[in-house]
Simulated scan of single mutants.
Amino acid sequence: MKTRAAVMTAPGKDWEITELDLAPPRAGEVLVRFTHAGLCYSDEHVRTGNMAPLPIIGGHEGSGIVEAVGEGVSRLAPGDHVAASFKPSCGHCRWCAGGRANLCDAAAYGPEGKLPDGTYRFTGPDGPIGANCALGTFAEHSVVSQDSLVRVDPDVPLSVVALVSCGVLTGWGAAVYAAEPRPGDTVIVVGAGGVGINAVQGARLAGAGDVVLVEPNEAKHALARDLGASHVCRDLAEAGALAARLNPGAGGADTTLVCTGETTAPIVRAAFEATGKGGTIVLAGMSEDVHDINVQLPGTQMVFAEKRLQGTIFGSCSPIRDVPRVLSLYRQGLIKLDELVSRTYTLDEINQGFADLRSGRNLRGVVAHRGAP
């Protein structure tokens, strides 16, 4: 079959909308009609050429409806509503068996845009082409592994499901699982993008006392307060001084979550300084160059204060467990998701969507593919 998709062909270029050939699903694979795709900074990083080999079909955050399944597929059936998961979950590797499915071995080929068997299903004018995180939610149709999809209740709007598939879980989980705030803790969240704003929600839901958001864009402050931020600061130095006053016993935050779209060495150092004695710095945001040395800290001071540096991918979430969990929290009114979407775009407007993301006009943009409910 043929399908339309947004493709990044070379570093620094815009997304190109093109028609591609798509082969049918093989064993263990599923044909999905994607209805929605989230515009996430991780896809913006694809533009640099450091995240994935180019050309590649974009999109790792999305939702859709199963149209066909390959041989041996047991988890899903045609008609199922699904969330995409950029971290597959095979269910039997050491990481899945140990409750850490976000580190599943099945993700090995994802950065190259290949399916788990090391091959491609899309073909472009110049030959086979990969799909970001082996998903390619910027395509109207895609063939993906059943391990990369989570079935969801069809009563939940697919526009909401798309958010949960990456950004919401990454931020919420970073606060709930990686930071593990205790009741009454002082938490700093750096950045109010799609990850940071949900780290605020996660920290509040986990019982944090003061949740201090660092965000220079004042347009995001009111929503941040609505979603649980008790204080908002424009920079980390101000937030660190505030945390020291709020939490004098530790002399700073109990936890600082770095959720920036571009995580640099100065940001990490400032987060370290803002964190108090016995505290944890959680890195949930990435650098534009994924090989950049952006952690440069005074190790002896870390020893003296027993501070801890913790990385987290996908918020340390298990997709099969936590996608339904967060959607249940949404339906109970305990976490807000509809309010996160600043604007919905068509696939042909995707470059405007990323321009709005870069400029800070959007908290979260969503692409609604043709025929989306």
Rank of each mutant, 00 (worst) to 15 (best):
R245N: 11
C259H: 05
I267P: 01
G249S: 15
V290I: 11
E273C: 02
L257E: 12
G278L: 09
A253L: 00
V290M: 12
V282T: 08
G276S: 02
T256H: 07
A239D: 08
D235V: 14
E238S: 13
V290H: 10
G278R: 01
A239R: 04
A241N: 13
C233S: 14
G285K: 02
L246I: 13
G240Y: 10
A244E: 06
G252Q: 03
A274S: 00
T280Y: 04
N247R: 00
E262P: 00
L257N: 14
F272T: 01
G285F: 03
A244M: 09
T260S: 10
G285V: 08
R245F: 10
E288W: 10
T260Y: 07
G251Q: 12
G249L: 14
T263Q: 06
M286V: 12
R245C: 12
A270I: 05
A243S: 14
A265F: 09
E273H: 05
F272V: 01
C259N: 05
A284F: 04
A250H: 13
T264Q: 06
D235S: 15
G249H: 06
A253C: 01
G261V: 06
A243W: 12
L283I: 11
T260N: 02
G251R: 08
C259I: 02
A271K: 00
D235H: 14
M286Q: 09
V258M: 03
H291N: 12
L246E: 07
F272E: 00
A284G: 02
L246N: 15
D254N: 10
T255D: 13
V258K: 07
T264P: 08
G276A: 06
T263F: 08
E262Y: 04
A237V: 15
R269E: 09
T263P: 03
A237D: 15
F272Y: 13
